[in-house]
């Protein structure tokens, strides 16, 4: 495994475009902390975002993972282009001739995907922890460790999405077309979602039961938007209530769905490569 990671690392290190995208990605992740600096000071109205409770533990885990997930597009670009370029430069052929097996090739790509997801998760964990320790109203360990499952959800979400990118890179072989295909997939999934919701208009739960299995939806479903919850947190804080509404919780079956998709994307990448003549 270490050897395969090393191989990927050599490839990555020498790709200027990928390095640039990765740097932008981490700068953007760091920029979440800049939200803390948002201040409006217009006459009588004073608004200081950091004091609105968004950096309160445990809410910060939810808020930051949700915001950070938008930037995953930068890393998926790296994954798709690194994979598709192996085809356009025909280096995949050379890799196999040099003695890498097809399985090892896909595994090395998957390890890269895994590492990207893991580093992103650790990065956002550290940033959230620092921001939380600076701005949170509650800094007791028992509260900090609440809701840490958002970190797991964030990791799984990235893992699934990046595997999707890997699959499209292998399937389409051309980076630009693979990205386009990702967009088309997103549009088609959205249309199907709309149609299903419309069809089961009187029974939204039934629609939800079906659409929760769609790949992109299942990934976005992992971490719900946190804004509705912000008021609840504030209210809870203000009234010193300890119970918080849990509509926004991570459901383990949702994580399982995304993990199954991750497996399928990686598995079918392998099957595709195995079947193809290069």
């Amino acid at each position: 495994m270490f050897r395969l990671l090393q191989i990927e690392f050599i490839k990555l290190k020498n790709s200027k475009g990928s390095k640039l995208l990765i740097i932008i990605y981490f700068l953007l992740l760091t920029s979440i902390s800049l939200i803390a600096a948002i201040k409006f000071d217009i006459g009588q109205i004073k608004f200081y975002l950091a004091e609105q409770g968004i950096f309160n533990f445990p809410y910060i885990w939810h808020f930051n993972t949700f915001m950070a997930a938008f930037f995953k597009l930068f890393l998926v670009l790296v994954i798709v282009s690194m994979t598709a370029n192996e085809y356009s430069n025909r280096t995949i052929k050379q890799n196999l001739i040099d003695g890498l097996s097809k399985k090892e090739f896909i595994l090395s790509k998957f390890y890269m995907v895994f590492t990207f997801a893991l580093i992103s998760t650790l990065f956002i964990f550290v940033i959230s922890l620092i921001l939380g320790l600076m701005y949170s109203d509650f800094k007791e360990l028992s509260i900090i460790i609440l809701d840490l499952e958002y970190m797991v959800a964030y990791f799984v979400k990235l893992l699934g999405f990046f595997s999707f990118g890997l699959f499209l890179g292998i399937l389409i072989k051309r980076a630009a077309f693979a990205i386009a295909a990702m967009f088309v997939w997103f549009v088609m999934e959205s249309i199907s979602l709309g149609l299903l919701k419309w069809k089961f208009n009187n029974d939204p739960e039934k629609a939800e039961n079906i659409i929760q299995f769609f790949p992109l939806y299942s990934m976005s479903n992992l971490i719900e938007q946190p804004f509705g919850r912000l008021k609840a947190v504030k209210a809870a804080a203000n009234q010193l209530k300890t119970t918080i509404e849990y509509d926004y919780a991570i459901h383990w079956h949702e994580i399982a769905i995304v993990l199954v998709w991750t497996f399928l994307f990686t598995f079918f990448s392998y099957k595709l490569l195995q079947k193809r003549d290069l």
Binding site: I10, S15, K16, N89, R90, T91, K93, Q94, I97
Partner: peptide, 12 residues
Amino acid sequence: AIIESPNFYPNM
């Protein structure tokens, strides 16, 4: 082994 065209990573 060397096949028809040399395939390497262009930016390396």
